[in-house]
Design a protein around this nucleic acid. Structure first.
Lengths: 174, 174
DNA sequence: ACATTTTATTTCACTGATGAAATATGACTT
DNA sequence: AAGTCATATTTCATCAGTGAAATAAAATGT
């Protein structure tokens, strides 16, 4: 596996040369794009790697964490679809997997019996509380040399970028 | 599709509540991780969306761009594997696809006849020069409200993060 | 000359995700 | 009460990515 730093060095040179052939290229912005893509992918790998021992994939983990973070520990498939960015079909599958492992329960809602209430179980809570802490050191390491100001800045810039991406997809793939 | 901004708001609240239950949670760092993952995934989507009309996927595009950016327009499968983060099997497939479309050629190297020389064709260059410029406005839009200082900062912080991620994967999945 | 290593391709099998359309059920409207 | 809308599940098909192992061909080492 080539290290990220190598790929970045190579990307830097590459964009440099391309912008000589195509001067209209917004080189600094293109570099930021590629950086985001590379670092994002690497982070994703890192996460999946930590989840593998628990036999969870990213979507299942995210779904479970959303439930865990809810004051009442519950939600509905539709809502989970939204926040986990999943299709309805997939959410049914995810819920199936988590139910089978006893981490969540599924039941009809009282008020609107079309809805399904998904709820994290005590076992689900224990599971999260057990699997989460071992991840903390690695997360801390990632930002070990960041000053508080660096962290605030990164947060701010990523949120700005997120906002702009929302605009983009609203206008083109609405 | 839920907008990124919604998911972020929801993530912020979620992590806030989780860190009340689990005080050791490094909340600011966890937030940054989630932000990176969300924005990275959204950027990836945006890119694939722009590539789809050209019937290219991310790896094919990246491979083609690496070749385009080379001074001599050529490379070898092994090298491309490294920088495109692909397995050898997959690189053979990618090359097959690009050869079939006449964007690259494949031939034995003169010096070391085990090696295969992959070279971008004039048609490949024209293809890149035609497909790239329409992407520029969208890339510029993403960072429209970034000051030069913001861009420099984001670049610096992402590179720091990349470096730390390299350390992490060296020690654990070596 | 023979064994080992390097490089790339092929084969095969599997995983994983994905999503459209049909179905089922219940709520809302008029 | 009939029609329409909302919610979730099931079915089905498919695509995309992946990767290990076998194969082939050429260089390198001894």
């Amino acid at each position: 596996m080539a290290r990220l730093t190598n790929c970045i060095a190579m990307m830097d040179e590459g964009i440099g040369r391309v912008s000589q052939i195509i001067p209209q290229l917004p080189a600094p912005e293109a570099r930021l794009c590629r950086l985001m893509l590379m670092v994002g992918a690497s982070l994703e790998e890192e996460l999946e790697f930590k989840l593998k021992p628990h036999k969870l994939n990213h979507s299942e983990f995210l779904t479970l964490m959303i439930l865990y973070s809810r004051p009442d520990g519950s939600s509905t498939p539709g809502e989970l679809c939204e926040f986990a960015s999943q299709g309805a079909t997939n959410m049914t599958r995810i819920a199936n997997a988590l139910v089978k492992r006893g981490l969540i329960t599924r039941g009809a809602s009282e008020e609107d019996r079309r809805r399904v209430l998904i709820r994290i179980t005590p076992a689900g809570r224990r599971f999260v509380q057990k699997m989460l802490p071992p991840m903390f050191p690695r997360v801390a390491t990632m930002f070990a040399d960041f000053s508080d100001n660096d962290k605030r800045n990164l947060s701010r810039l990523l949120r700005m970028l997120a906002h702009n991406l929302d605009q983009l997809s609203e206008t083109s793939h609405p």
